[in-house]
Design a protein around this nucleic acid. Structure first.
Length: 876
RNA sequence: AGGAGUGUAGCUCAGUUGGUUAGAGCGCUACGUUGACAUCGUAGAGGUCCCCAGUUCGAAUCUGGGCAUUCCUACCA
């Protein structure tokens, strides 16, 4: 490469396309399975949810991981850096439903010729298709999205090994998930039990504690009068009057004097006239409402716990769809003192959604005379507004209901202590994030529910035998054997059975549920390491070195991954976990698609370049949120341009110089050696910071050193470098420039991979026999022999240049304007030192005459010298 | 309510173990096209380091107490 061939300006788009192809064709980022574990750095990359598009938040955190990977690669490590796509699960189903206007009905037969058509407009979900058709269209859609995602990641310059790609729905991941399930089953760490579980009525599936979020909603307190059997009455307060028909008890605090006389008696509910026990319960609060409240199946977690504790009857009135069921009162399950009336009420409520039912019940209570003469309506006064917090599935719109269903649970509650200990063995970056993990584990109150009543997910490798009445025997499941995996129990059969026996008396049925997405993504380290299928590979990749992830999923992804690794192999899944912050809007709220952020990463890259976005992403400290600010992209863009220009200049000076004059042994001049010492410290500190995952510290350090290089050192020595090319002084400058340039390319390479590869290719790719800077060695401090004490020459030069530039600027003259005379005043030894750089100063400030030195006892604080400058009358 | 983080220039943020006069970039003002760079450069203005008390010769930094703000967790019949 000759400098003449270089473009006048840096064209980032062209360069980035070129080097992207170059890296791919040279296999720069390939993992080498032959290298030993110690020399390999393993990253457990987060598989993003495939549901449309990636946004700037993804760019932010994935880039932060990439600079770590690039640093480790330059340190000589063999890098295992895979990419996975989390396509399995509800987000994909939701997207497909919206996009294609379809809904899965497992009862329908497969249609061979059915082809879904995606439409941009949100279709109403109307067309029902079979499970198999539904899964096919999910597969097709995610495959399309994944191609888009990959394109963006390549453009962003993530140094991933694309051969290690996986999708969480593929055969390999399904197999690993099922192996995991069977292993937990063998170790008696899973339970299949019927139990009240948080249920989303929209998606009609169970959800886990970790996927639940609280939302503030307006509600109303309703005061309702209950009669006491044998005389008397009391008023309860409730926000959920629609659950009146599900009331199984009434409770007050054991020490509440008002209700002492009632414990042991029975209350009669209004409308339904159901006899329920009045009991003491610790969770009742004397101060709240009237101090007495109803227990329903199920209003909240207290109801569930009290119901379990007391062995109360189950009266589930809310159905899986979120509607009130057709309940017949006057039966053993739903007794009533007045079945006729209860059934009249029930007939008015059945089929209503919760909200409608609430309205209706209130209406009826208004009309209802409270079973007691002279006490007015059962509804006492008017409903009083209140702010209430309700639990929602994080992806759902309607409040969750507790519904008793049969689900698979992983027994985490028994192992809180062990799981906290495991978390402690991992090194958290930043350290404080461990607290969140610890607090989450301590606060767990439910086992991990891993079954979902959905379709696009990993099946449970389980069948149930049917008895002579075709009722499943859940107590004795048939588990798949290893050689059957991955298995779909709905289309494949257990050993010893024939397909004809499916669903028949004395036959079998497949478990219809799928696993929670997290049950699979909690295995990402094992998915990558081929746990259970390739022992050698597993040993060479597990545990991983680094798990990068965001903080809001500590309670899910980090926790579940630690749990699985411990349950399977009593290991930690990775040695380090690096928690990235969020990208927030100017009001410090998390940026997300739903908040109407229309800026796509693709358009930002086109506008500012990948290097610029990477600069922005890695300026932010690990774990800290960063405000989305396009100004920072511009600064990154400018840095890349500066790198190009400074490189071009240095290259211009050294391209025709023989290699022997560019070796570090030629760096003989004091000022050059001082500069190299400065650079050494930058290299040392950068290395130290990187080892501590403090990439942002590296960047700001290197950046400020680079600007000092351009503004001060380069300006200072450039004239010497080209005017005295063939002398010892000139060669010292040239060798120093060459070495410094090379060092900066390497120091910036993890952050700005494209511009660095570009300028590296001009000269060093050949000289250093490293076609890619990203495979070149991370710099080490340069040992200068025969080091003599040189003092703060660079600082002196900086002060002098600034002073002389300041004079010219104040006089409104250009920086090349000649200086007639300079008087330098300072202390004796400083003046003596200054002589080392006087020629460089004279060159770079266009000083015509000599410098006149004057000794003075005291200089202004924090300065070396005082300058008296006489500018020339005329320009050159 | 409990826990974690943050609070430094108009804005976004550094500030490495306590140490002269607290830094950078953006923005602002003025100037300058110089033989790498106008996608630029140079210079300048701009701060009660949230507040109060303490430790210390010395505090943005350490301790205690507030305040503000973000997040996590819990509760709210």
């Amino acid at each position: 490469m000759k400098s003449k061939e270089l473009p006048k300006k840096y064209k980032a788009n062209e360069a980035e396309a070129k080097w992207g192809e170059f890296w791919e064709s040279k296999g720069v980022y390939k993992y080498n399975p032959e290298v030993s574990r110690e020399d390999t750095f393993v990253i457990d990359t987060p598989p993003p949810t495939v549901s449309g598009s990636l946004h700037v938040g993804h760019v932010f955190s994935y880039t932060q991981t990439d600079v770590i990977a690039r640093y480790q690669r330059m340190k000589g490590k063999n890098i295992f850096y895979p990419m996975g796509w989390d396509d399995n699960g509800l987000p994909t189903e939701r997207r497909v439903q919206g996009l294609y206007g379809v809904r899965c009905n497992p009862l329908l037969p497969y249609k061979e010729d059915w082809v879904g058509k995606a439409s941009d407009k949100k279709k109403k979900q109307e067309e029902e298709i079979s499970r198999k058709n539904f899964l096919e269209v999910c597969q097709k859609q995610t495959a399309e999205d994944e191609i888009k995602y990959e394109k963006l990641w390549r453009h962003l310059g993530l140094s991933l090994d694309w051969e290690q790609q996986y999708e969480t729905i593929n055969d390999h991941c399904r197999k690993v998930s099922q192996i995991s399930f069977l292993d937990l089953q063998k170790k008696n760490l899973v339970d299949y039990k019927e139990s009240p579980t948080m249920w989303d009525t929209t998606f009609q599936t169970a959800v886990a504690q970790a996927e639940v979020e609280e939302r503030e909603k307006g509600g109303h307190f309703h005061d309702i009068r209950f009669a006491v059997e044998g005389g008397g009455d009391f008023v309860i307060s409730t926000t959920r009057p629609e659950l009146l028909g599900a009331c199984v008890a009434v409770v007050a605090h054991p020490e509440d004097e008002r209700y002492q006389g009632l414990f042991g008696k029975y209350a009669i509910t209004p409308l339904f006239n159901v006899k329920v026990p009045i009991m003491p319960a610790d969770h009742a609060d004397k101060e709240k409402g009237s101090g007495i409240l109803m227990v329903c199946t199920f209003g909240d977690i207290h109801d569930v716990e009290f119901w379990k504790q007391e062995g109360l009857p189950l009266r589930q009135i809310i159905e899986k769809e979120g509607t009130i069921g057709a309940i017949k009162y006057g039966t053993p399950k739903f007794p009533s003192e007045n079945p006729e009336k209860a059934n009249e009420v029930s007939s008015q409520l059945k089929g209503l959604y919760v909200k409608q039912a609430r309205k209706k019940v209130v209406e009826l209570l208004r009309e209802e005379g409270s079973c007691l003469a002279g006490k007015g309506a059962a509804l006492v006064g008017e409903p009083k507004p209140t702010q209430q917090f309700t639990k929602h599935y994080e992806k759902g719109d309607h409040p969750l209901e507790y519904i008793s269903t049969r689900q698979w649970f992983v027994k985490v509650l028994d192992y809180k202590k062990e799981l906290i200990e495991q978390g402690q063995k991992v090194k958290w970056h930043p350290e404080s994030m461990f607290k969140r993990y610890e607090q989450w584990v301590e606060g767990l109150n439910q086992d991990w529910c891993i079954s979902r009543q959905r379709f696009f997910g990993v099946a449970f490798p389980v069948w149930y035998p049917l008895d002579e009445n075709s009722r499943p025997n859940y107590e004795n499941p048939i588990y798949a054997s290893q050689d059957q995996l991955p298995v779909d129990p709905l289309s494949e059969i257990p050993k010893g059975y024939t397909e004809e026996q499916r669903g028949k008396p004395n036959g079998f049925m497949g478990d219809p549920d799928v696993m929670d997405t997290w049950a699979t993504s909690s295995l990402t380290p094992q998915i990558s390491s081929h746990w259970g299928t390739d022992d050698k590979r597993h040993k060479s990749l597990f545990p991983a070195d680094l798990r990068p992830q965001a903080h809001e999923i500590i309670r899910t992804w980090a926790f579940y991954t630690i749990t699985k690794a411990w349950m399977h192999e009593t290991e930690i899944p990775w040695k380090n976990i690096a928690i990235s912050g969020w990208v927030v809007d100017p009001h410090k709220k998390k940026m997300s698609k739903s908040k109407g952020n229309v800026v796509t990463p693709e358009s930002l890259i086109d506008q500012y370049s990948s290097d610029a976005l990477r600069y922005w992403a890695t300026k932010a400290k690990l774990g800290s949120d960063t405000i989305y600010d396009e100004n920072v992209f511009k600064i990154g863009q400018r840095l890349a341009t500066k790198m190009f220009n400074a490189s071009k200049f240095v290259f211009l000076q050294i391209e025709d110089v023989e290699d022997k004059w560019l070796g570090p042994e030629n760096i003989t001049e004091a000022v050059d050696r001082v500069w190299i010492e400065k650079l050494n410290r930058v290299i040392e500190d950068s290395t130290k910071f990187f080892e501590d995952y403090n990439y942002s510290g590296v960047l700001s350090q290197v950046e400020s050193a680079f600007w000092e290089f351009c503004d001060i050192y380069l300006e200072l020595v450039k004239t010497r470098a080209y005017k005295l090319k063939d002398s010892k002084e000139g060669r010292s400058a040239l060798a120093s420039l060459s070495y410094t340039w090379k060092s900066f390319i390497k120091l910036f390479a993890p952050f700005l991979p494209y511009i660095c590869e570009e300028v590296w290719s001009w000269s060093f790719a050949e000289k250093e026999n490293a076609p890619s800077v990203h495979k070149s060695a991370w710099p080490k401090p340069l040992e200068l022999t025969d080091q003599k004490e040189a003092g703060p020459l660079i600082d002196m030069a900086k002060e002098a240049l600034n002073a002389l530039r300041g004079e010219k600027t104040t006089a409104q003259k250009s920086l090349r304007w000649p200086i007639e005379a300079l008087v330098l005043k300072g202390q004796g030894n400083d003046l003596e030192r200054f002589r080392e750089i006087e020629k460089d100063i004279a060159f770079s400030s266009n000083l015509k005459g000599n410098i006149q030195y004057e000794t003075m006892e005291s200089v202004p604080e924090g300065k070396f010298f005082e300058f008296s400058v006489t500018l020339s009358e005329n320009a050159d």
